[in-house]
Design a protein around this nucleic acid. Structure first.
Length: 105
DNA sequence: AAGGTGACTAACA
DNA sequence: ATGTTAGCCACCT
């Protein structure tokens, strides 16, 4: 099941690293289902206790629109993980070139 | 049960 | 360069 793969992949993200939705979706077998990754995170993060904060969009910016999972909380969790999160125009930004997670490396 | 939305990405105009 | 459309799968109405 796609969701199960996504969950496993998310749990495979090492601390101090971040991955993009498209990257996780690609590893799950469906590169175009990036949005589905977000959906799964949104619903399953509380069930599987997933590090949802380590998953961001291609621009390395936090795109959470959920009031229950505010960007500020995600940024805090990322910094707790050792990831430097910058704040730009009210939006949090992470350097993917620096903290981008390379699976299988 | 079927249709629409959504924490996305990328290509086309 | 920016704006819109299309594709994906799970959850909600």
């Amino acid at each position: 099941m796609f969701a199960s793969k996504v969950v496993k992949i998310i749990k495979s993200i090492p601390r101090g690293k971040v991955a993009t939705y498209g990257q996780v979706a690609a590893l799950a077998g469906t590169p175009r289902a990036a949005i589905v990754v977000g959906q799964i995170l949104h619903h399953q993060t509380e069930v599987y206790n997933l590090p949802w904060q380590r998953v961001i969009n291609s621009k390395g910016m936090i795109s959470t629109t959920c009031l229950e999972h505010p960007p500020a909380m995600q940024a805090g969790l990322l910094q707790e993980d050792g990831v430097t999160v910058s704040e730009q125009n009210g939006q949090f930004w992470v350097d993917l070139k620096k903290y981008g997670w390379q699976a299988g490396m």
